[in-house]
Design a protein around this nucleic acid. Structure first.
Length: 646
RNA sequence: GUUCCCGUAGCUCAACCGGAUAGAGCAGCGGAUUUCUAAUCCGCAGGUUGCAGGUUCGAGUCCUGCCGGGAACGCCA
């Protein structure tokens, strides 16, 4: 069965016929066991029920009970030692009959008061919440009425879309999906790099080609052809840059013979590189001045790029609300400059117009934000400012989020500061830079840069294709029953999923080291592992063949492994919230692995369809279905499909 | 030189607002299949959380200073 595309969630998902796909939404996820504990705890301590609820947390180990109440704060208020207070509370609560209905043991362990819930009662309470059709689990309305603008992906139109773009693309898309589930209105913006000298290079390269061949190539290969042209025209420039960097290297600079060799090489390359640069700049200037022929060419190249990009985005299950790029904001820049001058925040410095950012007494030194260069042209900061102001006017965002790599941290903090200085009444707090590290790959035991291989850029499709191919072979071996077409669909879902999961399973700020073997590995903390777990759950339900008996007596779930699964499911809403607050989908990925582990443990130890009794089988079916739904939901939020067979 | 980010098991990574004995996976060793998918599960082993101070009932987490790795540093984007 092919995946369906959901335009609302902007992702592909799989539905198994026969059940309703319960997608999640709302804040009332707290079940009655927890409510009861909080209520009785409140009455014993004098705390407000909400306060008590907030302080309850899971103990570090399973044997320590299900919920722990740390007594430190309350002990301070009451001027008692925490362990003593814990003892007192345990004595008071042990005779509480209302509490006894959900909890079979309350005990003090040092400064903590630990509640041991009745397994069946707790499993039932959690699963009822997870399966509640009126309250999609994990979703909430906390973001209702607020708009989040999320800028991500943002490739340049002339350049290849390579693996380096994956982090921003995948991360941004996940944040959008997560924020939507929390009730926010989201605007996803692909801030295309469709303006600047790079366009001039592109025109130049184009003009050097035979008209017939270039048309044929463009029609056949789209962005790949343009990328190739761009790389080719930049060879002298790149070469020059490498040489100049070498010259700055201390180790090389001290050796006169090497130095002079490099210098003579530079002398050889420089005229050509400079010539090309001059021509490119001139062409871009013509474009800016409105040359109709270049304008038409620009539009064509942009269109071709967008069409090609959309193929990639479709493969990743992503669509944007806006692809307003740098060119789009060009008309707003003049207005902005005029406005900034009127506001008196622009200062002339060394021939340029800048917004000074130095603050007396501030720890951090900042260079000024340059708005107009000495030659009268604008900078990308200028366009970024114009874009932010445009977005505020158009969307009235609560937050304006930029998913851009960490190398640009200084740029963003300066630009946000400039925004504040300009005095629009909204500022640094409303704009967020979500930075992330670089993508590396481990090959032959060495960590290498992933964006280039043998000196050339690796396109994202290339990476995805090779991963899909690896997976196709594994599928062939593991599940020969699938038809060729099914196999291809599964391989695509698992191959692409493996990469997308890997990228998002690590905290975004650290550099990501990608390992081809580990990412598709039969075992381990990987996307395929989670997908496989999901497929196993689907398999049970498929064999059962009827709809899941939601009215089953869930208190029959009394095994520790059953409880472990339920308790993992219980954490989902919180994980979702934390992921959104920290702009960190990796938390969701970690949760998926934990839940999968718990489920596989249950799966290995207990039978569902051959359970000891019919009622127990029914209860377990609900557990399986709930897990299945949450795994699918979590995977989808990360932009990963959940095939029901693999 | 200035600023920012990172430093946890041999390797790749977790650890929510500061909470109990720092957890997973890989690699290594030993087990589990008349069974709903073994792409699974269980066990063993693996640690002075880079170093040194400080803050407090309590620090991998916060503060200061070092050490190591990466990155950015006024008119490129």
């Amino acid at each position: 069965m092919p995946p369906l595309y959901d335009p609302v969630r902007r992702c592909f998902f799989w539905v198994y016929p026969g059940w309703v796909f319960r997608m999640a939404s709302s804040g009332a996820h707290v079940h009655h066991v927890l409510h009861t504990i909080a209520k009785r705890l409140a009455s014993a301590t004098g705390l407000a029920e909400d306060a008590a609820l907030n302080m309850l947390r899971p103990p570090p180990k399973a044997g320590m009970g299900d919920y722990a109440f740390p007594c430190f704060e309350l002990a301070k208020q009451k001027k008692k030692a925490p362990p003593e207070l814990a003892q007192e509370l345990a004595h008071a609560l042990i005779r509480d009959t209302e509490l006894a209905q959900v909890v079979h043991r309350v005990e003090a362990e040092g400064p903590f008061l630990n509640f041991h819930a009745q397994r069946g009662v707790l499993c039932s309470a959690i699963l009822r919440k997870v399966c509640d059709p009126t309250q999609p689990y994990g979703e909430s309305s906390e973001g209702a009425g607020k708009t989040m603008v999320i800028e991500f992906s943002s490739p340049n139109i002339a350049k290849p879309f390579h693996v380096g773009h994956m982090m921003t693309t995948v991360l941004g898309a996940s944040l959008v999906r997560i924020l939507k589930l929390l009730g926010y209105t989201t605007v996803s913006v692909n801030h295309l790099g469709d303006w600047g000298t790079q366009c001039g290079y592109q025109f130049l390269a184009w003009q050097k080609q035979e008209p017939d061949t270039r048309e044929k190539q463009l029609a056949a290969r789209g962005i790949d052809y343009l990328a190739e042209l761009y790389i080719e025209i930049n060879i002298p420039g790149k070469h020059l840059k490498v040489l100049e960097e070498k010259l700055l290297d201390k180790n090389i600079a001290v050796q006169p013979d090497i130095r002079s060799k490099i210098e003579s090489e530079i002398a050889q390359v420089k005229p050509e590189a400079d010539g090309l640069e001059q021509q490119a700049r001139a062409l871009f200037k013509n474009l800016e001045d409105g040359d109709p022929e270049l304008r038409a060419l620009w539009q064509r190249m942009r269109d071709v790029t967008v069409i090609s990009l959309n193929k990639t985005y479709l493969r990743l299950g992503i669509a944007f609300d806006s692809d307003a790029g740098e060119a789009f904001y060009e008309p707003y820049v003049k207005e902005l400059v005029k406005d900034l001058k009127e506001r008196g925040v622009l200062v002339q410095s060394e021939g340029a117009w800048v917004i000074p950012l130095e603050e007396p007494g501030a720890k951090r030194k900042r260079p000024p934000c340059i708005i107009i260069k000495r030659d009268g042209a604008t900078k990308y900061e200028t366009r970024d400012l114009a874009a932010a102001i445009y977005r505020k006017k158009t969307y009235n965002f609560a937050k304006n989020i930029y998913v851009v790599d960490s190398r640009q941290s200084d740029h963003f903090s300066g630009f946000f500061k400039a925004l504040e200085k300009a005095g629009y009444g909204w500022s640094m707090k409303d704009c967020v830079h979500v930075p992330f590290g670089t993508m590396k790959v481990i090959e032959d035991g060495l960590i290498k840069n992933m964006t280039t291989r043998g000196g050339t850029m690796v396109s994202l499709h290339e990476v995805l294709d090779s991963m899909v191919e690896i997976v196709r072979k594994i599928v062939e071996e593991k599940n020969p029953n699938l038809t060729g077409e099914q196999r291809q669909i599964v391989a695509e879902a698992v191959g692409v999923g493996a990469i997308v999961f890997w990228v998002q399973s690590r905290r975004r700020l650290s550099d990501i080291v990608f390992d081809w073997k580990l990412a598709t590995s039969p075992d381990g903390d990987t996307g395929p592992y989670v997908q496989y777990t999901h497929a196993r759950a689907c398999s049970i339900l498929r064999k059962f063949g009827a709809s899941v008996p939601l009215q089953a007596d869930l208190t029959l779930l009394q095994e520790p492994e059953e409880l472990a699964v339920c308790k993992s499911l219980e954490r989902f809403p919180e994980v979702l919230k934390d992921s959104a607050e920290g702009y960190e989908p990796s938390m969701l990925a970690t949760w998926l692995l934990e839940t999968s582990r718990a489920f596989n443990d249950f799966y290995n130890r207990h039978q569902v369809l051959k359970a000891e009794s019919m009622p127990l089988m029914q209860a377990r079916l609900v557990l399986v279905d709930a897990t299945r739904a949450m795994l699918a939901k979590g995977l989808n939020l990360l932009g990963i499909q959940a095939p029901d067979e693999m």
